[in-house]
Each structure stands twice: as C-alpha cells, then as structure tokens.
Nucleic acid binder design. Structure first.
Lengths: 202, 202
DNA sequence: TATATAAACTGAACAGTGTTCAATTAATAT
DNA sequence: ATATTAATTGAACACTGTTCAGTTTATATA
C-alpha cells in the first residue's frame, strides 16, 4: 500500500511528535526508536524519513518542544521584590517541571548532536529564551548596562544547576550524598548569588 | 579453536581494559562495542563475557580506572595558604585532566547504569575519594566538626562544576555563550565560595 | 600412560538498532 | 482516459549486545 494521504505532511509531523513525546514520557529516551514511533502512528519507518531528516532531527524537534514547555512554565512566574525571591521562584518552576517531565528533560541532555555538528539557529533561540528569564531575575544585581556580565552569570548559574539536576536524574548523586536535589540547588543558588552581590559585578 | 590459554583471566581483564581505554580515547564512548574490544585483543566477543558480566560492567570498570587516574592527578596538588588557592589548584588539575582525556571523562558521565540499578560499593568509594580532596580544600571555611555541611558543600560545588564541564563537553555551551569553560568554572567557584564564607557555615 | 573431566573459546544465531531505496499505489494534471 | 507525480511500504544492509551449543585443550584421575 502507498499514497494514503490520510494525513498531510504537517499532520504527520504533528502526530509523530505527539507519539515521540508519549514514548519518551512513558519509557524514556532509549525507547525513542524509529520503529516505535512509526508503529505508534500507524506508518512504516520509511515514512518518518519523509518528514524528518533522521532520528537526530526528530529528537531535536522534540527537544525544541520541551524547551517551549519549560519556558511557558517558567514565564508564568510573578514579579517579586528581590532577585533572590525571583530566582527562588524560577528554581521552583524548574524543579517542578523536572518532576513532571523527568524523561523529557533527560532527553534534552542525554541526546547530543553528532560531534562537530551545531544545532540549528531556531534551537539556540529557544535555549536563549529560557536563559533570558534567568538574566531578568539576576538583573537588579548588576549595574545598568553591564549586560555581558549578567548574561555570563546567568549561564554559569544555569550550567551549575544543570549539573546538579543531571547528576541526580542519572542516579549519580544518590551514590555520594543523601541531600535532596532541591537542597543542593538552593545551596548553589543562594551562595552563588551571595557571592555575586559582594564581588565584581560593576 | 578453543581453550587457548594465551592469557590468564587477569591478563585478559588487563588487555581488555587497555583496549577499551584506547578505543574510547581514540573514538569516544560510542565506539566502545563488544566487537571492537574483542577485535582489538584478538579474541571473540563471547570471550569478553567470561571476564565481564556485560558491556555495562566493562564500562563501569573502565570508569573506575578513569576515576583513579583523576584522583592521582588531583592528589599531587600542593598545600597552599588559602582554600581559594587550593580550590583553584584542584580546578586547574581537573580542567587539565579533562583536556587530556576528554573522551574518557565523557564516558564517566555519558554512561549510566540501567534505571534502578546502583553502582557497586567499590565504585562509590572511588567517587568519594575524589570528592574527599574537595572537602579537604574547603575545610578551613567550616568550623571544626561540621563535617556534614562540608561534605554537602563539596558535593554541591562538584555537581555545579560538573554541569559546566559536561555541557561544554557535549557542545551545548557553545550554543549560548562564548565564555571559555575555565572562566565559567572559575566564576562559579569564586562566587560560591565567597557566598559560603559569609553565609551559614557555622 | 590412557582416559575422564572441566574449563576456555569460538562463531553462529537472535532480536534489536538507524537508514536507504526500488517498487507499488493512488491522487492529480493533462 | 492517460500520463505524471508524489506518498508509502517493506525488504535489505550493516550494525548493536548477548547467548550458548559445540569444539578444543589443559588438567586431574586411574
């Protein structure tokens, strides 16, 4: 059988992403195979390759959606009085997203592009969009205009928190500590920001 | 052909680890396959399964060696005046190890045990041994006896630095910043420790 | 020394992976 | 009614980890 046209290319993209999402949520990144997705949407593996360049491409698109969802969750934060409060709120949102979507979040980082390849611009834009929320929260700590220092601090903090979350997610933290992720993340956040406040932010 | 006895089981373990190490150093974790290792040592895949339970087991042992090598590198640090100096020296050692053994270091984290499984005690011991160097360097900041706070801080700092190094190693940092890894790591270290100094360490 | 036992090793096999592509089918344009 | 074009399939390729019956050889026993 061929030329079914049950779905347009756009619909095919949509249901494939949906299926990919469900597969990952249910069984994790390792279960995200071409045949699994194809089975789930009732098409053959080959059809996926009309819509996506390859599985890497599909994964990248899935991760794009996860970043969108993460942004939406974080963006709904209220504007509080101090940077510390705002950052704490962002952290709450981040950790609760992580709890709700462990497997999707893990896929965000377990997957990396083949060596040497860079992600497309639209992907970098989504990451930067999430980071901009962190920059905003850090903003009051830095003097007006020092956008570079602010951007750098946001990325350092993000990477640091990522370390805690990813080691925890892969079970590597449990081996060396009984501290809960939240406590560690709060510890890093509080002390790093305290350090920023007294050090070279001018 | 069978029953060659060219090598004892210990020798087999040794040359397999050697081969695994070279394969990873040369081509990365993804090249660490049973057949690649078997070919490299001139045995069939099946033989590997007499020495190791499975590829996971082999990888875990390889990672154990990497941890040993990392410890040896860090342990050779001198004892300087301030925690800041000692921590800086550890960071230097860590980053230079990372540069010299990118692929081995990546394997340390790209690989995780199947969900639910815990690494054996000897593995946890090796990780804790590396962490003890960090604890030692942080020691003067904490009041005598507060070993738990010290241990916690060491693990938070380690996880944070790990985030920076792993995002960098997988090419994910380059997407959002031009900061060198070293600058980011130093930024995190300096501010986190500064924060520790003024906050609740008593 | 001849024979039985046990251990080491192989290589084919199984079920899975990503990916390609000739062949088929159906919608569309002529 | 016919030719063209595009969508879809499914078999095939080269790879993966892992198992295990069968072969070979070293060692222990008689």
């Amino acid at each position: 059988m061929a030329r079914r046209a049950d779905h347009s290319r756009e619909e095919l993209y949509e249901i494939a992403m949906q299926a990919a999402c469900e597969i990952v949520e249910a069984d994790g990144y390792h279960a995200l195979t071409a045949r699994n997705v194809a089975d789930a949407i009732g098409y053959s593996p080959g059809t996926l390759y009309n819509v996506f360049a390859n599985l890497d491409d599909l994964t990248l698109h899935l991760n794009g959606r996860t970043l969108d969802a993460l942004y939406d969750r974080l963006e709904s934060s209220e504007d509080l009085a101090t940077p510390e409060d705002n950052l704490g709120q962002l952290l709450d949102g981040y950790l609760s997203f992580l709890e709700d979507h462990r497997n999707l979040w893990n896929t965000l980082f377990e997957y990396s592009l083949p060596k040497g390849q860079e992600p497309p611009a639209w992907y970098a834009r989504k990451v930067n969009k999430v980071l901009s929320l962190l920059e905003e929260a850090l903003s009051p700590i830095f003097p007006e205009g020092n956008t570079e220092a602010k951007a750098n601090a946001a990325r350092i903090l993000w990477a640091g928190l990522h370390g805690i979350c990813s080691l925890s997610g892969s079970g590597k933290l449990q081996v060396v500590t009984t501290q809960p992720v939240r406590a560690m993340a709060e510890g890093l956040l509080a002390n790093y920001v305290a350090g920023l406040r007294i050090s070279g932010t001018k």
